[in-house]
């Protein structure tokens, strides 16, 4: 009986670890971005444009340049739940720019995601 219990505990533990490691976190309703994800552009754009499938309130957007400098982008000019954002960007020269965003859907779901582009 004790042996059987141990085996069942082992099965449960294995199954839970398997479940724990299944990936895919969070929802990503981002429809398009400018620059597009993984695009290469000649100059640093003055703003990044993010268009969502539904209304969302962005709560934090950060930009990491060349895996070294990370800054939060200014969201003060936006209010309420909207589907389109044009956020001013700080130029940091050539290299890869990674934009990570977090927000709240009008239905109360927390949303997040990221995209990147490279400046030649």
């Amino acid at each position: 009986m004790a042996m059987k219990g141990q085996v069942m505990k082992q099965i449960l533990l294995t199954a839970m670890i398997g479940l724990w490691t299944t990936g895919a976190i969070a929802h990503s309703p981002l429809e398009t971005t400018t620059p597009a994800n993984e695009a290469t552009v000649a100059e640093v754009p003055s703003e990044v444009i993010m268009d969502f499938k539904g209304n969302i309130r962005l709560t934090r957007v950060s930009m990491t340049h060349a895996e070294t400098h990370t800054v939060d982008l200014d969201l003060d000019s936006f209010d309420g739940f909207i589907s389109g954002y044009a956020i001013p960007l700080q130029a940091m020269g050539s290299g890869e720019y990674v934009i990570e965003w977090r927000g709240l859907g009008a239905d109360g779901h927390a949303l997040n995601g990221s995209f990147s582009f490279t400046v030649e």
């Binding site: 709560t59 934090r60 990570e100 977090r102 927000g103 709240l104 927390a110 997040n112």
Partner: peptide, 8 residues
């Protein structure tokens, strides 16, 4: 915690 999810 939901608040923390919004700021990271």
């Amino acid at each position: 915690l939901a608040g923390a999810t919004l700021t990271g």
